[in-house]
Design a protein around this nucleic acid. Structure first.
Lengths: 354, 354
DNA sequence: CGTTTCGATCGAATCGATTCGACTACAGTA
DNA sequence: TACTGTAGTCGAATCGATTCGATCGAAACG
């Protein structure tokens, strides 16, 4: 099979109109159904189109004239591979598609890979959803804002001119911490999501909190620190199981007396990594170590444990974002929104070891 | 935070040109850098743009004039939620982004949810990659073909005018089957991916093979049937763990003498479901039942087993598709391609029970 | 000094549709 | 019969850029 070479000139609406013996405007009406056109005329136009192999109005011209493309941009600050390995993002995306409804012409994925840089500036989108929250996006926001493109962020924190859809991360995280506290835990570690665009894996001091540019990370840490002011934090960089395991290793491989009795992972994916690290070290969960996650996603194939975690309504979040986008495009107002999480007790947390 | 109401009229290149005291054409050159423009002039233009809050050339107008948008459509025939739960699709997508390179302006996701129907026809894409293979796509292919838009399919089988990037599914599957055969297995079941757009979960007779519209499913079944002509097949509909478990249940819950000694799942996700179903029934793997998968994806959190499977180069496949698209857009030729899979022995297959 | 050359700029055509206001019949109404 | 309303159609303006060929001035050259 081969391809390429799209023949000579392609038929346009003018050709169709000429062949059907009507004006361009009438032909246009026949296709869009926006004006009164007699059945006979419409049939003639459609027949002419078929004869010429005309594939319908050119979306480029249409969107120029109408001033909108029906496309919504989804901006990530990492590779798709990483973004979509996280079920939360996938659920959110699905929710967005759902919330946008049938008027949408699709979601335009804009990523680090050569697209955010230029792509975001030269993509014909009617609105954009920001799924990352790195500072790289500041440029994007300014650029799109100047073009008058409505913006909605997911877990991006409050920003001027951007509608944000998020979670009650602080209180949710605090609730998890309180659960551990009630079980008697006092020496607690936490595995953080990325703290900055570099995504380096490293220890983080609690007093670095103000410098953390990712709102999710900062808020979840803040909530935990309310209960455990002296907790040890280590950032995993990427939200992947292996990074969770690496971070957990750093927290666990310390003199026995300093080892935390509980680790709060900022996501379920990271928590699975923590579980794995514990297993490798012969630590029983929750006997020797309690582990909590965050998100409440189903992780396929995770057997043997039911994770204690906060369930977040990712799909609802996405749907809300989609609806906000639709409203903004329609010229209506939309407001920032925070969803509540729900504690789900599993079997990975237990009383502090004696 | 709220939004909406994009003020009055937005600045255009003409306004910028006027304010900078140059012609529109010069202003355009200053932005695109496509012609000789003196540094002084360019500065004046950029300054005028900044003063007016001009956000750069309108992508809609640009794409109309240039005849291309830089956007590549990715067509799915299912919800994003399902599509992206499969790591293979995610890897492939990432590969596509990679293969397209930096000229790309992003990937436009077109899905069942209100987008394939109309969206695909009214989306300004330079080319499209077909990721599903249901017959729904036939319309799409015709429609896009008429518009002269190059098409590349992933595992779509040979089609007139479409470049296909796939795998050696038949021989790969046969190799897996042969492995089981060498271990002594004779009574074998298989869990199929979807066989038709309905995605119903049901038993499938081997002589239904010609009617299976999904090439992947058909080819993998064909390969297995070469070794085990009488194998029992059950289609899972969707490629999800729970569907795999349900299909496995149907294969396992039969009189003891008829129960298969091995189950070949057409994907790793389905295989995990099979493992789960076996576990629920107290069957040991590979003691009582051997299980094979397909894909060789890392399934986060799958512990306790190393799946015997065929590793497929999903990212390479995606990259090849991306490169094919890039070539077609550039007017070059591109050719269909089949990648080879590689057998990876795990601990889920063993000798047939005595 | 006249001519060529080249860099910088400009005017105008063009991409392919949508849409608004105007125009024409023709039907219905008083 | 004259008038109004409406369905159907058309012409022309418009969306906002890119790009080709022409023009113009100055520098380089013989």
């Amino acid at each position: 099979m081969s391809g390429g070479s799209q023949g000579t000139h392609r038929a346009t609406l003018s050709h169709v109109a000429e062949r059907a013996g009507v004006s361009r405007s009438t032909a246009s009406l026949a296709f869009s159904g926006n004006g009164p056109v007699s059945a006979a005329t419409r049939d003639r136009v459609l027949a002419a189109a078929a004869a010429l192999g005309y594939g319908g109005p050119d979306p480029r011209a249409r969107s120029l004239r109408q001033g909108r493309s029906g496309v919504v941009g989804i901006v990530f600050d990492e590779r798709l591979l990483h973004a979509f390995r996280d079920p939360v993002n996938v659920q959110t995306l699905d929710g967005i598609a759902d919330g946008l409804g049938v008027d949408s012409n699709g979601l335009l994925l804009l990523t680090e890979t050569g697209a955010v840089g230029e792509g975001i500036r030269s993509a014909a989108v009617d609105a954009a959803v920001l799924m990352g929250c790195s500072t790289v996006l500041d440029d994007v926001i300014a650029s799109l804002g100047r073009r008058g493109i409505p913006l909605v962020s997911i877990e991006g924190g409050e920003r001027e001119g951007v509608v944000d859809i998020g979670l009650d991360n602080v209180t949710a995280s605090e609730e998890l911490a309180r659960h551990l506290h009630e079980l008697g835990h006092r020496r607690v570690g936490t595995v953080l999501l990325g703290v900055d665009p570099d995504r380096v894996s490293r220890p983080v001091a609690v007093d670095e909190l103000p410098q953390i540019t990712a709102p999710v990370t900062a808020d979840r840490l803040r909530g935990a620190a309310r209960v455990f002011p002296g907790l040890t934090a280590y950032t995993a960089g990427y939200n992947l199981v292996e990074n969770g395991a690496a971070a957990a290793a750093a927290l666990l491989d310390v003199p026995a007396g300093e080892r935390p009795t509980a680790i709060m992972a900022q996501s379920d994916l990271l928590a699975v990594g923590v579980l794995r690290a514990a297993e490798e070290r012969g630590l029983s969960v929750p006997g020797d170590l309690s582990v909590t996650g965050f998100d409440g996603v189903r992780i396929d194939g995770l057997t043997g444990h039911e994770l204690t975690t906060m369930r977040q309504p990712a799909a609802d979040k996405g749907r809300a974002a989609g609806e906000a986008v639709a409203a903004l495009i329609a010229g209506d107002e939309a407001h920032s929104l925070q969803f509540a999480c729900e504690l789900r007790l599993g079997d990975t947390t237990g009383p502090v070891p004696a």
